[in-house]
Nucleic acid binder design. Structure first.
Lengths: 245, 245
DNA sequence: CGGTGCGTTGACATTTCTCAACTGTTGTGG
DNA sequence: CCACAACAGTTGAGAAATGTCAACGCACCG
């Protein structure tokens, strides 16, 4: 066990430390540096539906999901709830808000019971960032990754046809199973997914139905099976909704 | 370091150096550090329409616009040309590609005659970034700013109604003149703006006509005059008499 | 002049939204 | 255990927004 516990309040428990270490852009970090980061961290538990922070609140920390899931959402001026992001275990969020915006731009809410987070307090972390130049590349990498995600999203939303947006989104989801029957788990409720893709739940439902009728998709609740990946890719790229491509 | 130790790129001329210094996130930098950054820089001139880099090319530099304008665009799978960004003098671009993606994700093209750029070579800049911890905050700040822009854009594109998207975009444009007759210059051609907002040129044209007919907008070529800012804001926010919740 | 390309307008087709009704599930309380 | 409400999801019909196609004006440029 690391015997350095008197400089800081009790560090987070080992499994959480592991989560922190596994963070994509913290992987290369020197163990001793990582420990100093952990010194800014504490554990947070949330019940399902509990609000972690609200839009407009001063950004004082960033977070890493250890278990459960966090949904970042906001209300559009049109009155829709928009899921900006759904964060899975092992991913971090709100770094950019901490580093620059000053305020959280979205609501953050736990979507599962007993969601566990690592909270990294902003002030000591920023101090550490100034003192330790080795930390900067990790932060820069993390920001670039977030940027790449957003660019993806902009491109997706620029597609005029609802079917293209959905198909493209599906292509970006983690899939499992054999190539001729790819399984995709929807991490969101269908109505949330619809809002995410700037369409109504009805339109989403009809798209899924049509693709089932066309025989290249199966829907079982919140799990989809793609029977023809080429067809999906074509739908993502073509403005022709009719298929026959 | 190798053979070409003395192949120091010629320092850029004073006005360009000034442009570099004025870069938002380089402002606080120590003069001597800024000079080292300038040591990675060289001047670039482009004719109107000339391609600076193409999508997919390896990202070896980032750029600052000194005069003229650069358009970042790409072709959507649907075949539309999509202007991802229009860069005005004093702004930088392609930092994120350099820092992380490895490849440029868009085409970059000069939209004005004799567009002048500062090109900062990636390799020496990255080396400088590693050596000089004081540079990292500037880079992080710049990335965060870009991130904020993209979030704006995602929110804009999430608006379902074309009128909302246009109104919201207009609200974000620099305006001049008295509040009761705000002048907004369109930096893009109308067809480019339409693509940027995920609509057709016809729809854009009809929206502008309708707002003129409603009496709160004037259009003179590529210059708009907003006679009723509140009306514009209302159009951006709740053009839907709706309550989908 | 005559071509070329942007922008506008009109007529029409298509997509998507809206509203409403209906299903199925889940959780609650009797 | 059942009735019930509450809610996600589906489906249908009609309305509204937007895309498509075509024609035209207009500026620019050789």
């Amino acid at each position: 066990m690391p015997a350095s516990a008197h400089r800081r309040p009790p560090l987070i428990a080992p499994p959480l430390l592991e989560t922190l270490r596994r963070l994509p852009h913290f992987q290369g970090l020197a163990p001793e540096l990582l420990e100093r980061v952990a010194g800014c961290a504490r554990e947070r538990h949330l019940a399902r539906g509990e609000l972690l922070f609200a839009r407009g609140g001063a950004a004082r920390s960033f977070f890493v999901v250890h278990a459960g899931a966090i949904r970042l959402s906001r209300l559009s001026p049109e009155g829709r709830e928009h899921v900006v992001h759904q964060i899975a275990p092992g991913s971090s969020f709100a770094e950019a808000a901490l580093l620059s915006f000053g305020r959280y731009p979205v609501d953050a809410q736990a979507t599962e019971e007993d969601t566990v987070l690592v909270e990294i307090a902003g002030e000591p972390f920023l101090r550490l960032l100034r003192e330790e130049e080795r930390l900067a590349p990790a932060v820069i990498g993390s920001l670039c990754a977030r940027l790449a995600q957003l660019v993806e999203r902009v491109e997706e939303l620029s597609l005029v046809q609802a079917g293209s947006r959905l198909a493209r989104w599906l292509l970006r989801q983690p899939a499992s199973g054999p190539p001729e029957r790819l399984a995709i788990d929807l991490a969101l409720q269908k109505r949330e997914l619809a809002a995410h893709l700037a369409m109504t739940p009805e339109t989403l439902s009809r798209l899924l139905r049509r693709w089932q009728d066309e025989g290249w998709l199966e829907v079982e609740g919140s799990r989809l099976f793609v029977l023809d990946a080429a067809r999906l890719a074509a739908t993502a790229g073509d403005s022709q909704p009719d298929g026959t491509a």
